[in-house]
Design a protein around this nucleic acid. Sequence first.
DNA 1: TCTGGGGTCCTAGGACCC
DNA 2: TCTGGGGTCCTAGGACCC
Length: 441
Amino acid sequence: MYALVDVNNMYVSCERVFAPSLVGRPVVVLSNNDGACIARSNEAKDLGVQMAQPWFQVRHLERSAGLVALSANFELYGDMSSRMMSLAQLHAPRQEVYSIDECFLDFDGVRGDLVARGRALRTQVLRWTGLPTSVGFGATKTLAKLANHVAKTAERKPGSYPRALAGVCDFGALDRAALAEVMRRTEVGNVWGIGRKTSAKLNEGGVRTVFDLMQADTASLRRQFSVVIEKTVVELRGTRCLEVDDAPEPNQQIMCSRSFGEPVTALPDLLDVASQFASRVAEKLRQQDGAAGAVHVFITTSPFRRQDRQHSPSLTTRLLRPSADTRTLVAAATRAMQAIYRPGFNYVKAGVMLVDLGPAGQPQGELDLFAPAGQGGPDDPVRRTPERLMQALDALNQRFGRGTLNVASAMEPPAPAAYHAKRERMSPRWTSRLDDIPHVH
DNA sequence: TCTGGGGTCCTAGGACCC
DNA sequence: TCTGGGGTCCTAGGACCC
């Protein structure tokens, strides 16, 4: 059996660990720029706050319903996540970390009562980290995800499913009739891989519940949608198409993109942004020990600003040879930015993406076949220095904080820039900054 | 006034090759 | 007048996930 473990309302739950006064209150965590809600407590969901809903649309609930909004504190969530993952890992032979708040566990060959094991896991994670979790067991990943949904919903909405399934739900422990009843009570859009568009189309065709979907003809589903849906149905019927993978491949692309605090029109600002973003993705790239073959840069105006002329240019620049050198990547990104920029537009967002990734390994730096011996030719030991320079850069930034050392063009300008994101409601980085450690009086 | 930031996979269609 | 068929590679775009 496979299990899916996830933290209930992860970001809100992390905030509550260090601010117990938030327990029981409606709380949302806002995206970058304090723009939209990216996490909601159950109380906030009950108020009708939707995922990704713009903050200005729900702001009135602050006064009328005591809604609390916090800026996203990813440093805190990342640290809490690794604590939770390392605990969950202790409960099964293999773990696949699937996202910041979820992991699959492989219980194949494990004897005993899985529900009891799931409860033990929940209890330990709650005691040791303060984070509430839900656990679902199923024969396939898709079933484990669905069981997790049932466990969570049964706990949150009494009456939706049998009380016994709250918190921990093992599909393997249900008899045929009970399982069919659960599938009949569950809308098809709750299945992993069935999104908004697909569920709308399925509903049109009379497929409303998971039960309906399980009966549907796979061949015609494949024709109408794609093999993805076909695999989903096969998995719902209990045949594995996806394995728990505890050694996933490194990422195929690495991106840094952000909305600005206010629209940006000037090229120098955008060049600053390009070099800062490129510097950030270069760092991420070296963490996975990779090299990028190409750099993709984009900027976009806002479709919500109807009065503005729209412009969303992008450009992919192929590098001479794969590189993980901040200086090379920053140079490519700023050159691309220069090329796509047009004056007179209100740009609200930019991004730098590294693509065509491969393993590092090749010596970096400019290769000059015709250089005299010892002066930049293929055998020149000096050519290895860029790697060591980047290692030193990463080591210093890790020890003293991001931005301690950078290439000059990626340094923050002395005055606060317009493109800086708003983060007016951010909590302290309780677990990862010495200055932010909570005091007990 | 104010609308997230990462990722993955699949498909269709065009260019190109023999 | 009549103008192949099969394969690969690349890109853009869409749908999905958290």
